[in-house]
Amino acid sequence: MVWSDRIAAGSAFLAAVIAGFVLPDWMISLATIAFANGLVVLGLIVMWRAGLVSFGQALYYCMGGYAVALIGRWGGVTDALLLVLLGGLSAAGVAFVVGFLLARYREIFFAMLSLALSMILYGLLVKTESLGSTDGLNVTAPTFLGYAPHQEELLVALYFLVLVVCATAALLISAYFRSLAGALAIPVRDNELRVEFMGMSVSRLIHTKLVISGLLAGTGGALVALAIGHVDPNMSYWTTSGEFVFITILAGAGSVGAAFIGSLAFESVRSFAFTMLPQLWQMLLGSVLLLTILFLPQGLGSLIQRLHWGRKAKAP
């Protein structure tokens, strides 16, 4: 990573930490959800770079959320970090298994198959009374290494947990993008045949990406479950997946930071639209997407890169 990128990432993290002490509660809870969803978007970006669009990330998102609710209920685990880890890992496990099937498909077939898998989970959850059917399940209030906060303190504690998890994920994923396995995403999108002839297994590369994106989506779902305190089958519904794809287009697949910026922008616009235009908020969201595709086809993230080039151009 270039030094300027490190400084930018560091100061963004610092600003987010300071915001946790300053901002009003409603903003903090909005940012908590936004950053947790940003993890799912980051997972989509991992696949996007290899030319794959998943319309089924809700599967892993929902798995992560239900894992937290069920492990808390049946296993009596309350530690937030442990719950989030288990939520992420159970989703990664699901991604590993369905990956054997999904890694064989591309383009629209991949998108539709992933959508179908998430709808199977939706159907199962709706039909299962013991898992709360359409009402879903409540999630017990988490503890943080023995510390059991309530109300506003819990809100802030969860916000910081989300920040720590997101920063860790961002660091690991940007290291992955620089690694051979991660950097081969564009070659895989461009020319699978050549990648195979260079001695790499394309299906294994894609399978890895599926597991990584499942892990990220599951972690995001687990954090959202803790933040909202409730999970229901809608987490696995196809519109949830569609929303993540929407945010990914808004954010652009150019950088790791874009996932979180895009997600924050989306949540802000949605909450603003919902307050200002209660009848027409979906229209406003649609217009934002249209404008993004027309004027920022590389997403919000490309604004940062443009700044970069601007600076480089000015430098002697």
């Binding site: 620089r178 690694s179 051979l180 396995a181 991660g182 081969l184 790499m200 294994r204 890895t208």
Partner: peptide, 10 residues
């Protein structure tokens, strides 16, 4: 597999 994840491209 680990080799590919741990080797940097550049």
């Amino acid at each position: 597999f680990i080799g590919h994840v741990c080797t940097p491209l550049r």
